[in-house]
Design a protein around this nucleic acid. Structure first.
Lengths: 235, 235
DNA sequence: TGCAATCATGCCGAGAATGCAATTTTTAAC
DNA sequence: GTTAAAAATTGCATTCTCGGCATGATTGCA
């Protein structure tokens, strides 16, 4: 037989074992998001999630370190990657521009990850709309982003050659940038995908870079729900 | 000042019962901060805190809803107060200016609360310097601030007559503002009080309102540790 | 086929957090 | 000053999160 299932051309990190792991990971994420969307985080136990994903409760913690992590923490070394990108991306570029690019890409990746869970994307977003108002979910998201924020701050400090012990700029800018992304993601899920995430983030960062004028284009975001004409991807 | 111990001039809501409650509250806060500063949040249990404050573990939860709340959540209805202030303060003023004023005052109040725990303020800040780098503490702070953020967003929306369902501006601006304050508090504790919190927040909000220029005065914050011109009150 | 690495699972324990009931302290009324 | 009501402290039981450890099953590789 010439080879039937050689993992040589489509998937770099494939082995039956790895595929199973990714499958279980997605099952757990899907189950968790679904349950939280309909009951609220407080009324969902790890046992519920594990049961819905058809694994033992103990196995859940082999994949995610906490009940909150399954909601947001997809990639374990996202922080390190972001720090590196922020520190080295387009060295001549202003910091804000680099942050916008790096964080927008990261957020898109996260959105893609959501879509890859299968099912109707709009359906997912519709169900997550409820989760957006859940105080516990909001707190969990903010807490989860604290690690990311720290990595971003280090990236900014490296990029600028600044010392975080004496210069508040990296920490403050990182906090502002990350929370803007977080707010955008939150709003985006709340609109059930009626606006383009990339466009929303662009406008938000433009507002951030411009000092949040009260007539910011952010205010009209819903007037531009989809792509407008051609070449929506210029600088 | 002839009075020796009549509680008639400093405390409005006094009754023996109320005073004891406040005392216990402060004892728990002090014990928690001290233990976390020296061991890290992960190595401090509620039982430890209760024992140090000489109350039962069960009583701890009568005062604070969680182990994290004792570190930051001083005032239970801070959120509602902030929402009201942001919504109504100086109606003609630009939103950013109102936010700066309201949040700066709130942060100062929080700093005062810390000082009121007794002992040397510099000592407190020195001990909290360690806590600043604790990932769990950072996450807890961020999570705690999520409630505040929500309230601020509602205040902004009210002030502008905006609808948070269709306008991302209130949520994004609230997220940015609150996290700037959070980063300032974090940096401030890290400097052991070497910089004036008010001045730091002023510079940070100026940077926020100006789009975070890379030559922001924030970068030179340590060059201006105290007040500069009139009324020099150095030691 | 057989060995080694890895994964899922069960069991156990510490710690967080809440409800309930009993006890003690403070307040208020007589 | 005594006493009843209100409220706070506490103990106890219970649920849930989370991690360490041992064991058996599965997979990868020679």
């Amino acid at each position: 037989m010439t080879v039937t299932s050689t993992p040589s051309e489509t998937e770099p990190p494939v082995s039956l074992r790895e595929r199973k792991k990714q499958a279980t990971r997605r099952l757990l994420r899907r189950a968790a998001l679904g349950l939280v969307a309909e009951r609220g985080l407080a009324n969902v136990t790890v046992e519920d999630i594990a049961e819905a994903a058809e694994v033992s409760p103990r196995t859940f913690f082999n994949y995610f370190p906490s009940k909150e992590a399954v909601l947001f923490g997809g990639d374990p070394d996202r922080a390190a990657r972001l720090r590196e990108h922020v520190a080295t991306r387009a060295p001549g570029e202003p910091v804000i521009a680099a942050l916008r690019a790096v964080l927008a890409q990261d957020a898109e990746g996260m959105a893609d990850e959501l879509r890859s869970l299968g099912g109707d994307p709009a359906d997912w977003l519709r169900r997550m709309k409820a989760a957006r108002t859940d105080p516990l979910v909001r707190a969990a998201h903010a807490g989860q982003m604290a690690m990311i924020e720290r990595a971003i701050a280090e990236g900014i400090a490296t990029r600028l050659g600044a010392d975080q012990e004496t210069d508040p700029y990296p920490g403050v800018l990182a906090a502002a940038s990350v929370s803007v992304i977080r707010a955008c993601l939150s709003f985006w899920t709340g609109t059930s995908g009626a606006v383009q995430l990339g466009h929303l983030i662009d406008q938000a960062f433009q507002a951030l870079a411009g000092g949040f004028p009260e007539d910011s284009a952010l205010r009209d975001i819903t007037a531009v729900p989809g792509k407008r004409v051609t070449g929506t991807r210029e600088a």
